[in-house]
């Protein structure tokens, strides 16, 4: 994976396979390519060379709209800066992507309510801009899980939170992915969070330098 203007490729990965229902930490210094890898895994960007297989389908061969649809149905994203929309309530924020993609199943409102309760938010009608950062990230988690995605991908979900709020968010991600049996990929600098996941992939300058089962757990 190359970006124009950069001599070295931003990402050069021979092969990486993430089985379903695994929990993976993606670590590496800032600029090592974590976000780039995520944007490729989620079909936000296409790779220059290579393939991204989802089951048997290479998502790089899908159209832009096809990838949007695929992502909406299969991937739940949690980002460092939340990307919640001010002016809407927590509840409306959770529903927004489903609304915009016309995926309002009949039970989806009830599910949104349940998820907000599950992440510990008792007031679904609270306006998003009046919430604390920790609460905001929990709304974002509820939003990511709404459409029961097979994979939840989080890019530095705790980096902009204090340690308590960060721990709570980490707990929620791990618990909820276990409960729903979905794959979890978390790009993070947080060693405590990394330790609690099953597998660690470390990137340096776009290459995988370490990929293995986390020490303590394996022992």
């Amino acid at each position: 994976m190359r970006f124009p203007g950069l001599a070295a490729p931003a990402l050069a990965i021979d092969s990486l396979s993430i089985p379903a229902d695994s929990r993976v930490a993606l670590t590496g210094a800032s600029g090592s390519g974590k976000s780039t890898l995520i944007s490729i895994l989620t079909g936000l960007e296409r790779v220059g060379q290579g393939r991204i297989l989802w089951g048997d389908v290479d998502i790089c061969t899908l159209s832009e709209g096809g990838r949007d649809r695929w992502r909406g149905a299969n991937i739940g994203l949690v980002l460092q800066n939340f990307h919640l929309f001010p002016g809407l309530s927590a509840f409306e924020n959770v529903l927004l992507p489903a609304r915009l993609s016309g995926a309002m199943a009949r039970d989806i409102r009830a599910r949104a309510q349940d998820l907000l309760l599950r992440v510990g938010l008792a007031r679904p009608t609270q306006m998003i801009e009046t919430m604390s950062r920790g609460e905001m990230q929990r709304v974002a988690i509820a939003r990511a899980l709404l459409r029961r995605p097979g994979v939840v991908i989080a890019d530095e979900p705790t980096a902009s939170l204090d340690s308590d709020a960060g721990d709570a968010v980490g707990d929620l991600l791990i618990e909820l992915s276990r409960e729903s049996g979905c794959t979890l990929v978390v790009a993070t600098h947080d060693p405590a969070l990394t330790r609690r996941l099953d597998r660690r992939i470390r990137l340096v300058a776009g290459r995988i330098v370490e990929d293995g089962v986390i020490g303590e757990r394996a022992a």
Partner: peptide, 20 residues
């Protein structure tokens, strides 16, 4: 840019962004 990107990242179709 980033907000519009986010709508797409969460699965909103391009058409929705255009219409908005």
């Amino acid at each position: 840019r980033r907000q519009i990107g986010a709508l797409r990242a969460f699965g909103a179709p391009r058409r929705a962004v255009f219409v908005i």
